[in-house]
Design a protein around this nucleic acid. Structure first.
Lengths: 163, 163
DNA sequence: CTACATGCAAAATCTTTGCATAATT
DNA sequence: AATTATGCAAAGATTTTGCATGTAG
């Protein structure tokens, strides 16, 4: 059931996006949660955009389709999705809260110029190496047993570098 | 001086704590800013504790000394200090905003058990290695020129590991 | 029908802002 | 005395909460 095929055909990657909503809906059903139009719409929005979204953005983007959608419901829904592992909560370095449909462990990069947020894949053992390299497990003053890490890169994205 | 043994163990930078307030006060003077009791108190608090502090914490901790201190002044002062490079603004992974008198480039670790926040030193070239290792500069889909990174480690601190 | 989800409005935080007052230089 | 900083109160922004209503199963 793991369709994490290596991205050899970059043009035909769209399956994840389209299936995100379907998977989510089925998940809700299987776990006894009600499939409401609001939950469906939020899942579909994630599936369509595949991006990190802020609660307010979600609310705004769904306003036309669901005029009665309340921000409280957006928050409720995101809380549910996060608790159940359908999305990840991401706090950016500027304090903004995003929700990310990409639940694979990964990191982020922020473009200094356009402010864009990009996913960065990184190998698990490279993280271990980093932990070792940081020397934090060796220094007596800061003996800290590392179980994980989140990295925020800064730099310039491809688009901004071109222009 | 301080009865509370603060969890700061940077042997290499011992005088910084004591001089932090003095340096800050002199800096204000030299740059034409007024040395007020509020600014002095905030600098001294950082110098005494040498820790990451939230605006609200600063306000609370100074309440007894400066009963009239307003939260707005705390924010104004922190904004000034940050703009002038006397402190760093730090947004934790849970979205909390801290101000850090340690302006040396460094990273942070959060203890899963006690929630404590610890400084982590890391070599610059190790960061470069990490950037390289992440492969982000090579993958065509995510060509991103890295200029810096901020790392948040999670794990268990020494105290919690002992108990 | 019954349980759960939604919408609304109010409240709790955190942070910023405008202006009169106060303190530093 | 002049200029800048402070305090206060009000306003934004974000997120949470309580309760009546609505709706999926």
């Amino acid at each position: 059931m793991s369709e994490m095929a290596s991205p050899k055909h970059l043009e035909s990657v769209p399956s994840r996006e389209e299936n995100f909503a379907e998977h989510g809906i089925e998940w809700l059903r299987e776990h006894g949660y009600k499939v409401t139009s609001q939950r469906r719409a939020i899942l579909e929005l994630f599936g369509r955009l595949g991006e990190h979204l802020k609660p307010g953005q979600i609310h705004t983007r769904l306003e036309s389709k669901l005029p009665s959608l309340s921000l409280a419901t957006v928050y409720n829904t995101l809380e549910l999705f996060e608790e159940e592992g359908l999305v990840n909560r991401v706090t950016a370095q500027d304090g903004e809260t995003y929700f990310d449909p990409n639940i694979q462990p990964h990191h982020h990069a922020v473009c200094n110029q356009c402010g864009g947020l990009f996913d960065i894949d990184i190998e698990g053992d490279q993280l271990d190496q980093l932990a070792e390299a940081s020397g934090t497990t060796e220094r007596e003053e800061t003996d800290f047993a590392i179980t994980g890490a989140t990295i925020w890169f800064r730099g310039v994205c491809e688009s901004c570098d071109d222009g």
